[in-house]
Design a protein around this nucleic acid. Structure first.
Length: 331
DNA sequence: TCCTCAATAT
DNA sequence: GATATTGAGG
């Protein structure tokens, strides 16, 4: 229980705001919440940092950067590509503005000055996604997580139970397949299974690699090189890629109608003539605002960091779940 | 040699 | 049902 209360500690938050005093104020507040904080004034540098630390950023808080709306672009980059929950803050926000951000993937919209009470709660954005993805749900059904965690006393509230589940999950992750420093899988043998199971986490790394390369240039060998997962083979990646592409084909054709109906209307407002191109290293990371439209609803962007399905007890759920989860099969 | 795709095996 | 392997064709 104590641990449950401690859960949000260490949440890795990246803050972007070009106003130094706001930035340091935010840093202070976030540190008081026991989060790990990284701050950036510069949007480009922040994006580079995110790219270099894909699995090491839990949540992003970005200024909306009115009137340039860089915040909007950050939001799009991050939510469409990397599933990192993003909170937008601005000194004012009328309903339609806020709605625009939320519709396009913001997990929350905070009005400045931001109060510590609001920040102490931001971990919920991560958590919601985990629940949506059934990771936590399984634990909620069973009050006593099958881990080495200290036996839990029955949780009084959902929040409590959920936090507890997250602790359990996190510790499982830590001791198993995920690198202790960042949540990134670095060696599939750690999964101690003869047959690889493409967990959500592993899949995310895969998708991130594919996205970095660009879909046309994403071939097994290059993906493998970017993923940096020991003992993962080219053949395994090829097999997964094959399936991934099949899925893309399907979902593109089935989502088209919905996307046109739902998304275009919400996007019209912002029709970015300013393409976001934050990073361009050797032409291998080129972000344009032009990749596929955001999904029909906002389940698309965001959280879910520690998600693993490779334990034998719930392998069967793992892949199937995220096959149908737009969060993972993004485009 | 590597890629993709489909069929087939595990 | 998910993943791996194989084999054809590029």
């Amino acid at each position: 229980m104590d641990q449950a209360e401690l859960w949000p500690c260490g949440l890795r938050v990246l803050v972007i705001d070009n106003n130094s005093s706001n930035l340091s104020a935010m840093e202070d507040l976030l540190l008081k919440c026991s989060y790990k904080v990284t701050t950036y004034k510069n949007v480009r540098k922040a994006m580079s940092f995110i790219l270099d630390n894909l699995q090491r950023v839990d949540l992003i808080i970005s200024d909306a950067f009115f009137p340039t709306e860089d915040g909007f672009l950050i939001l799009q980059e991050v939510t469409t590509k990397f599933d990192i929950p993003t909170v937008i803050m601005a000194s004012s926000g009328d309903t339609s503005t806020v709605m625009k951000y939320i519709v396009n993937g913001a997990s929350d919209f905070l009005i400045k000055p931001v109060r510590i009470e609001e920040l102490s709660n931001i971990w919920q954005h991560l958590f919601r996604k985990q629940i949506r993805e059934h990771v936590v749900g399984r634990y909620l059904e069973q009050p006593y997580p099958p881990t080495t965690m200290a036996p839990a006393t029955p949780a009084a509230t959902i929040t409590c139970a959920a936090a507890e589940a997250a602790v359990a999950l996190e510790s499982e992750v830590r001791e198993m397949d995920i690198d202790s420093n960042g949540g990134e899988i670095t060696d599939i043998r750690d999964l101690r299974k003869s047959r690889l199971s493409w967990t959500a986490q592993l899949h995310r790394q895969f998708v991130a690699a594919v996205n970095l390369l660009g879909e046309d240039k994403a071939v097994p060998k290059k993906i493998l090189g970017i993923m940096k997962v020991k003992h993962l083979t080219r053949e395994q990646v090829a097999s997964h890629l094959q399936k991934y592409r099949m899925h893309l084909k399907k979902s593109i054709s089935t989502n088209k109608r919905k996307d046109e109906a739902t998304v275009s209307s919400s996007l019209k407002t912002q029709n970015h003539s300013s393409r976001s191109k934050y990073v361009d290293q050797d032409g291998c990371m080129e972000f344009t605002g032009a990749y596929s439209l955001p999904k029909d609803d906002l389940s698309s962007g965001s959280e879910c960091i520690y998600m693993l399905g490779e334990r034998n007890d719930y392998v069967s759920k793992g892949f199937d779940d995220f096959m149908h989860e737009p969060c993972f099969w993004n485009f």
